[in-house]
Amino acid sequence: MQLAEILSSLFPAGHEIRESGGLVTGTGRLDPNNRIDVVGICGKTYPGVDEAVALAGHILKVAARPDRAPLLLLVDSGSQRMSRRDELLGLSETLAHLAKALWHADRAGHRTVGLLYGGSAAGAFIATALACGSLVALPSAWPEVMDLPSMARITKLPIDLLKEKAATTPVFAPGLDNLFATGAIVEIWDPREPLSGQLAALLARPASDDPRAQLGAQRGGRLKAAAIAAEVERLSLAHG
């Protein structure tokens, strides 16, 4: 689905959403009484320091408002921008700040929902989609930690071997189904049904503490994480 189709399916009661320089900001209405704030990164944009700080600034303004309107983050990005300038200016700090801003908005009562409808990768994925309280995806989404050719270069493993393993091993292979299995994505929406109803249904369910490790165990994509984290917590508390 294209961004325009997604917006009209999400907001049948209308929206005022602008796109500029790969960033999306504005508001939409699920129905006449329910306003949703919208931010996003679109067009496979690679966020660098400028984009991260601009997005975080917008999110913090929403977080500071006393109402409790939800915040929807639309994501179709590349990985973080790879450049000398971005690293010189502290890209790690700005991406961490963006993740903090999303966490803070959620905590301040503006429930954060990420909608991954295109790509996202590596540090950009962590600081955007994965930093939302709930992450959903459309079937068109293509999340990845790193593409297989780059992975082959860094791990010094042959690309054919990686392709062969990718077919049977969800834990490292790119793509929506593999990320879904680890618990990263709470649900995949049906593009043939109105997205407004699917968003309303998600918002009607109470938010919970981070459920992703449990989801990963239930779905079989990440069998050990939940148990290990729980065991460490138990040992720490027992030690006092």
Binding site: V145, I154, T155, F172, T182, G221, R222, A225
Partner: peptide, 15 residues
Amino acid sequence: LQEANAGELAISEMI
């Protein structure tokens, strides 16, 4: 990278 998806999500959970 050999367990990229689990590692990526672990970082998000740690944060």
